[in-house]
Design a protein around this nucleic acid. Sequence first.
DNA 1: CCTACCGATCGGTAGG
DNA 2: CCTACCGATCGGTAGG
Lengths: 225, 225
Amino acid sequence: MTVAPSPTLPKRPRGRPRKTEGERDDGNRRQELLAAAAHLFRETGFSATSTRDIAAAVGMHSGSPFYHFKSKEALLFAVMEEGMHSAIARQALALQVADSSDPAPSLEVLTALDAQQRIRHLIRAHFETLLGPGNDFVPVMLYEHRSLSPRQRSVLAKLQLDYEAPWGPVLEALHASGHLNAPVKLARLLILGALNWSVQWFDPQKAASLDDLTDAAIALFLKES
Amino acid sequence: MTVAPSPTLPKRPRGRPRKTEGERDDGNRRQELLAAAAHLFRETGFSATSTRDIAAAVGMHSGSPFYHFKSKEALLFAVMEEGMHSAIARQALALQVADSSDPAPSLEVLTALDAQQRIRHLIRAHFETLLGPGNDFVPVMLYEHRSLSPRQRSVLAKLQLDYEAPWGPVLEALHASGHLNAPVKLARLLILGALNWSVQWFDPQKAASLDDLTDAAIALFLKES
DNA sequence: CCTACCGATCGGTAGG
DNA sequence: CCTACCGATCGGTAGG
């Protein structure tokens, strides 16, 4: 059964949340496109998502996304770049909080207690970045990495280095104090992998909260003494 | 500079490894297709790989893969199914080896030593399945899961359950003996995630061997007492 | 940002 | 398994 179209309505009434009369929406149509693209890329994959799908999701016509982004690839890159920037910002904020309990921790001589505080905040912030509501940007970055040009890849690789920078000293300190047993380099890869994979199975409807996940990860990775 | 085509040669001399005169290749063209598809799906992604690419990789023409598989999706499914079957077989073999040192271990009352033996073999076999030379099938299964129909997904979900079945009792035993601290259910997800993510960073050219990875994983996840 | 459109590519098929 | 082909869809553009 189909719904008869009302002849007085325009052909495409769905999807676009019209602004109130006379208001211009200016540059934030671009943000809407980014969010819709991130969501669809995450759900369906980059290659399997058409630019028409993205346009439709924000109530545009098929050619219009190209007014905001010069190519589908540029849109993907913008999603990833924004994802990394917000991930880095969230992480920095989390580390500020960790530091506030111990006003002057030095990165070069982290005490065992500092390091345990910091790894917890790093892990918790990472889960938030991956699994928090509406946070589709970084998962896209993690799983659609292949679809970028070498040039774009290298820009993002640098952002990833920035993101991962705080993990090194923390893991080193934990290793030195006997709380971490594996070689630091491999430990970092395995730990981040365990966290990143949560994108595949985490269900916000179900049992575990992000705090539960953080506790479990700490219990799994860290030794007690 | 281009090479002038030799006029006496057929148009498409590349790619197909011709059998010696008169030999029929029968059913193993299908296997060649599977292997080529697995490799391309892994490298390029399912959606971004065309059936023409796959055909060309084994020296066929564009329509010919559909003589062996009724659709591109069926080809993907076959890759994944074969991947899971060989993963399950490899794992079973590894556990046999683990058992041979202790002839009659009971699954219900695993000693702490049994469990440590078994987790090591489970992890090692898992790395082999993911990272071993030519083992593209399971990585495709892990990363292209989205592209399947619900029906196919449920078949593979059952195979995954079979695969993961041995992990449960082993992790329970390790938890009971104090070698594993996190809740068993989350521990399983995090551990398998850490291993699965290795597909993203492992480089067979570089440093670590699969044994190194296994040692690091054991050191990271298990407590000493 | 819409309209109208293009060339390219894609999965798949009929017939041999 | 090849030949020859089709309809659909796709990323992208010119012009307003």
